[in-house]
Amino acid sequence: MIAQPVIAIEGVTVRFGTTDALRDVTLHVKAGEFCALVGPSGSGKSTLMRLVNRLVVPSAGQVRVRGQDVATLPAPALRRSIGYAMQSVGLFPHRTVAENIGTVPRLLGWDAPRIARRVEELLALLRLDPAMGVRLPRALSGGQAQRVGIARALAADPDILLMDEPFGAVDPITRRELRAETRRIHAETGKTILLVTHDPEEALELASHVVVLRDGRIEADGAPADLVAPDAAPFVRELLGGGQPGLRWLSLLPARGALDPRPAPVGAAMLARNASLADALSVLAESGDEALGMEGEKGSVRAEGILGARR
């Protein structure tokens, strides 16, 4: 059986007035994927995401979620089944943190004790102080508000989570924490996540599937390492490469793939099993050794092997 994509966007064009925000876009996202939409501002990435919960209606083409054409579904029910977190968070200022988090469960008619239990779980999942539930949003820091926003998006345990630049408005340290949190949540829950970001590093770090947009079209669509590989399209390499596309490419390839059958010299530095080629290169540069060992492997990782990734 061929796995159905959980999100299927087929030949969609979105027209706002006289301009096309999206032109004939096709995108499939499989269940459990972490898919990042990257591109400069105005490239249509947010519009593409908002098609999924019908905040945007296509002028042409079809959007299917879980195999059903969204145009045939009632919008409120569809939206309640999909989590949504955004940069401006949009917490309800007159409602407490707990009430904010419990919004969708309440719309779905859960009873009060069940909502209370779920809110408690989510505060723990997002590592928020349980006592924070009774506070109003104005008492939260930017990072806390963002965590509450993500908890609210996860409240009814949706299988799909849409995140529109959720880490854009917080300081760099908080952003790093939130990214790690998101990766952990994805690993623990196996949800399908669609993330809009203008930060290429964020996309490459988090996603298993990266989609690059420009002027309403998809420029590239694939695994992160493939999009910065030397044979990728120049615009994509430039956008994602961050000035040193070669190094970024190596950082996305596993060092295990360059294992050489020759054993590592005695006393050579050891790499972790999940190290990337860029990690290996960094250790080589620091140690001055010719070859490195790897934990649990007999062979070695050598400079020529790392640089041979191209071949």
Binding site: L55, L78, S81, Y84, M86, V89, G90, T103, G149, R152
Partner: peptide, 10 residues
């Protein structure tokens, strides 16, 4: 933003 969030949550 709050209005938009309300809409997006159904």
């Amino acid at each position: 933003a709050a209005v938009q969030a309300a809409e997006a949550m159904g």
